[in-house]
Simulated scan of single mutants.
Amino acid sequence: MTKFLLSVHVLAAIIAIGPVTVAASMFPPAARRALEAPDDPGATGTVALLHRICRAYGALGIVVPVFGLATGLAMGVLGDAWLITSIVLTGLAAAVLLALVLPRQEALVEGQGTRGTTVRLAMFTGIFNLLWATVTVLMIVRPGSTTGA
């Protein structure tokens, strides 16, 4: 059962979190282009599409920690420091996405943002991506692991 849970956890991370990190990273430059050419339907359409991807795959991303916790429980590692740290960082990443990234994207999609909004959005997106990269490294290295990594 542990292998199944771990497989779903990893697949969910790849399928759900990967698109959010890519789309969120693409959003600020696309939004700047849309701000420079507000009459360009391609530019505004791209921004709207990237925002929908971030919202949809961000919502789907809840599967990652759910199966991560189930896997940790099955492996008996819920009390390990690396996993607790990963849980905290995952929560922070979700908070950054929900409170800082998506609302700024929404404002830009609705035409209420400025170039300054895209700069702050790029910074928050970088923080979001860095948090997920750190969680990924912790999942691979697992301090104290017996896998030899």
Rank of each mutant, 00 (worst) to 15 (best):
T2V: 14
K3A: 15
L5M: 14
V8I: 15
H9Q: 12
H9D: 12
I15L: 15
A16C: 15
P19Q: 00
P19Y: 00
V20T: 09
T21F: 01
V22L: 13
A24N: 07
S25I: 02
M26I: 00
F27E: 00
P28G: 09
P29D: 14
R33S: 14
R33Y: 07
P38K: 13
P38R: 14
D39R: 11
G42V: 09
A43C: 07
T44L: 11
T44S: 13
I53H: 07
I53W: 09
A56N: 11
Y57V: 07
Y57E: 03
A59G: 04
G61E: 04
P65L: 07
F67W: 03
F67R: 02
A70F: 12
L73F: 14
L73P: 03
G76D: 10
L78V: 14
D80Q: 14
L83F: 13
I84N: 01
I84D: 00
I84L: 13
V88L: 03
G91S: 00
A93W: 00
A93C: 04
A95D: 02
V96G: 00
V96K: 00
L98A: 14
L98I: 08
A99Q: 09
L100A: 05
V101G: 05
V101Y: 01
R104Y: 02
Q105N: 09
A107V: 02
A107N: 10
V109H: 10
Q112W: 01
T114P: 07
G116M: 05
T117V: 07
L121G: 05
M123T: 14
F124I: 02
I127T: 12
F128R: 01
F128M: 11
L130C: 12
W132I: 13
W132K: 10
A133F: 12
A133Q: 02
T134P: 06
V137W: 09
L138G: 04
T147F: 12
G148R: 06
